[in-house]
Design a protein around this nucleic acid. Sequence first.
DNA 1: AAATATCTGTGATGCAAATCACACTTTTTA
DNA 2: TAAAAAGTGTGATTTGCATCACAGATATTT
Lengths: 232, 232
Amino acid sequence: MLNHALKNLPLFAALSDAQLSEVAALVKMKKLSSGEILFQEGEDSRGIFILLSGEIKISKISDKGAEHTVCLIQPGDAFAEVVLFTDLPYPATAAASKESAIGCVPSSALERLIEKHPQLGIQVIKVLAKRLYDAQNKNKALALDNVTDRLCNFLYQKAKESGSVFTGGLCHIDLPPTRQELASMLGTTRETLTRLLMGMKKDGFIDLDKNRLSFDPDKLSGYSKNGANRKL
Amino acid sequence: MLNHALKNLPLFAALSDAQLSEVAALVKMKKLSSGEILFQEGEDSRGIFILLSGEIKISKISDKGAEHTVCLIQPGDAFAEVVLFTDLPYPATAAASKESAIGCVPSSALERLIEKHPQLGIQVIKVLAKRLYDAQNKNKALALDNVTDRLCNFLYQKAKESGSVFTGGLCHIDLPPTRQELASMLGTTRETLTRLLMGMKKDGFIDLDKNRLSFDPDKLSGYSKNGANRKL
DNA sequence: AAATATCTGTGATGCAAATCACACTTTTTA
DNA sequence: TAAAAAGTGTGATTTGCATCACAGATATTT
């Protein structure tokens, strides 16, 4: 039953039933209410986690106190894998942005398991590689693209995830609960983001009602003023 | 002999002699002259690489044509590990910034090896985790810190690597060959970087002669105008 | 050693986005 | 349902940095 839940996680998908049972024995379940902090940046690491339901925000705080959202973890994702096989403290803060259920896996136990089962290590590699890929793209965007482009790209990615890009129709997505939250993901301020969204709405590129946003992904690519988002 | 060279690489340090021989059989050596391109962003991936000597620049180009340096690979480092166990194209361009010698390892062969030898997978995990850690810190810096802070932090990191922070003395480091290069690593422009360096020199925080830069890491932390770099 | 190309410093100017400020709306709490 | 709290839109202002422009310095080529 727990085995079955684990089997659906990308991280453990490749394991045999026997191996799954081994993993299951290690996992401790935990509930987090919205807003609750799981670990703080700089805290000694206890292990890695798997999100079963809800949403976890991974963030870092600058010396000036401003917050940067590294990413939002979605159900099925593992997180805090960076601490595996290192003795580093958690490099960011994890807090539940919705009521969440997580599985906790002590690093030491998981490490021993990976040493025994290469398949498990390979899955971890895949997860880390994807994260690194995303992080490096984000770096480039922060270094070279303006806020409009970053926003358009965010929406485009969302559209791709929801699958509606290829069907050609309109795409409806839910924005993060607050403007501040989205701003902090994009590396900008609440005010700037608001202005941008209102501008895109006025220009007819998006339809926005509360946190529900609709748009045509194909049209969007032509939006950015300086052409950075145009198709090649 | 090749075994011995491989043994010194972090990636293969944990392998037995027999395993090393297996790896050695896969590695094909290659020389690159300065400026030569190893692979381009978007190109289908053939495998991962190990830098034996020289330096490789990993970079991405924005739609507008501006370049962002993802990182500089140093001897002993593996790179392009992101493509392991995925069928993604190379996500960035790799070019030799100095005359370099590299080892090429076809993904498929290495993947089979990792499937057999968990230790190898674990090393890959470590390398990826470190890269991800760095990339996320860079994200935060690009999103929240100003250029001065990013520059100071870069110098501070360099000082740490060279070990002179803890000895308390002056630290001498070599900057990248051109200002443009360093600017592109920090996510800024050549002109801005020049102005910043000249300013720090005028204020007596650094000594700069050509590409040789000396400074006292302890004093540096107090430099940034808005206090972002102060000690906590 | 002259000619060409490539870097560098620095002034002048422009602009995207941060900051500050505040009324207005929505949600939460008591 | 009234009061408090949290989030939102929008104007006015500032500013850090990019951009443009060009002369002087260093390399590189022939």
